[in-house]
Design a binder for these strands. Structure first.
Lengths: 254, 254
DNA sequence: TGTACATCAGTGAACGCGCGTTCACTGATGTAC
DNA sequence: TGTACATCAGTGAACGCGCGTTCACTGATGTAC
């Protein structure tokens, strides 16, 4: 009874709101618009209550629809969650890219700090989205393939910086050791997606630094810096910046 | 109508199961035993389904009780969650302490790696407990004061190692810079609980390394190493060990 | 040692709530001739 | 350009589920005299 829902079509409708107005029918336009409104309502609920409280019925209520009507647009609660995850990855990616691109091109340290600050800013502004993406997995939910593209936008920014640092000769190749064989094998999946100009050792350090960025923001958002770091926002920022500077030293970005 | 429930009493009953048999009444003993069984059943549910699926009714079912009977022992679902959080922190703390203490005393690098390996092992064996403690906060739940003691057991192990490294002169004091004033102020809460032999710079590095440990395990457990690190368990372990060795270099524990 | 009263454990029924999902349906929009 | 049929959006009712929590109650255990 359900119409053949194209998942990719939904994503298009959601992520490309302003494409040139082609000769689409009224129905097509209404469908795209309502799909976007459903996702927007879901996003608002996520922002306020968190992923656990997200329900199709509440989305329907907010839009003045009967709950079953939502099923014309979204196959299930899980699919809606997937859309939100994709959107979160995407806006986070955009925020980090934007911040990094606004920094002076020649100053790698500044570009790194800008990226980190952008990451943290977005996360503090969207705590539930952050939790959805980097926190505990939603029980019974398995992320589909569609998320891996958007998920890699931020890492890709970091990879760009690492490559730039390597190209600029900023990485201490004396200190760069050869990795043990098993560690090199462990890294083979990432290795495939990263330019050869980044040596294995730098790649391993890059993962360390990426872990650190996400870990630091997790700690802050999930309350693990209580009684550790002062609560005053400026001091928190100073601490984070200091931590990220230390991280940057590991990969020639300080 | 509810009896005056002493929270500390419950914790005693749960965490000190084998205290000397004093002249307690049958009722008292039955109460302690059932309280322990309730927490044990809740722990099993947590292990299987995760915190979101934890319900008082399910606990009651498992013990063959009527759901309202559980309220004789536990004031609410939140209190039960708190008990589980405390227990998770405690068993994690015990696991890390045990692992660290089993390493040769004179070998700080080995003690560090043992602590990290113990942390990761416990986490892989108790993924939902890890998520409960280090993952997204449970919505609508605020951790009470009772958790902060157990929560600091693992950090305390790391502090011990940092102090030992400092005492042994393993930390490069040339490289140790003076911290900017705002970063020093940001650190004042931790500072109060850490021996003076650990300088500010080392303390800041210590937090970096602690973030890294938790972050690395989070990434692995929450699926963020998919398509990054090979799935084979031995290779994952090799990668983790390598990352922790790099972390150790920052604090003179390599 | 035995009895009277107080305390406590566990029962069973109920309240009120919200959820995801299905299904047969009406009425509006789109399309082919 | 108009009509006949096909497609689609949204409705309303229902199914079946589980949850946390309250409350008046029975019967067992504990205690004071």
């Amino acid at each position: 009874l359900l119409p053949p829902l194209s998942f990719a079509g939904i994503i298009d409708a959601v992520t490309a709101p302003d494409r040139a107005v082609t000769a689409r029918t009224v129905r097509e336009r209404a469908r795209e618009e309502l799909t976007r409104e459903i996702v927007a309502a879901a996003r608002r609920q996520l922002a306020v209550e968190g992923a656990a409280a997200l329900s199709l019925r509440a989305v329907a209520r907010e839009l003045g629809l009967v709950s079953s009507a939502v099923y014309r647009y979204v196959a299930s609660r899980d699919e809606l969650l997937t859309l939100l995850i994709i959107e979160a990855y995407d806006t986070l990616g955009g925020a980090v890219e934007g911040a990094e691109e606004a920094a002076p091109r020649g100053d790698l340290a500044a570009r790194w700090q800008a990226a980190c600050a952008g990451f943290r800013r977005w996360s503090l502004d969207h705590p539930h989205e952050f939790a959805l993406v980097f926190g505990s997995p939603v029980p019974g939910y398995a992320a589909p393939q569609d998320t891996i593209g958007p998920a890699s936008r931020v890492p890709r920014v970091l990879i760009g910086l690492l490559a730039a640092a390597a190209d600029a000769g900023l990485v201490d190749h004396e200190a760069a050791r050869d990795l043990p064989a098993d560690v090199r094998r462990a890294l083979s999946p990432v290795r495939a997606g990263v330019p050869d100009t980044i040596p294995d050792d730098l790649l391993a350090r890059g993962l360390l630094v990426w872990t650190l960025l996400v870990g630091a923001v997790s700690f802050e958002l999930f309350g693990h810096t209580h009684n550790v770091v002062d609560d005053e926002p400026d001091l928190r920022t100073a601490f984070f910046t200091d931590q990220m500077r230390r991280a940057a030293e590991l990969v020639g970005l300080a």
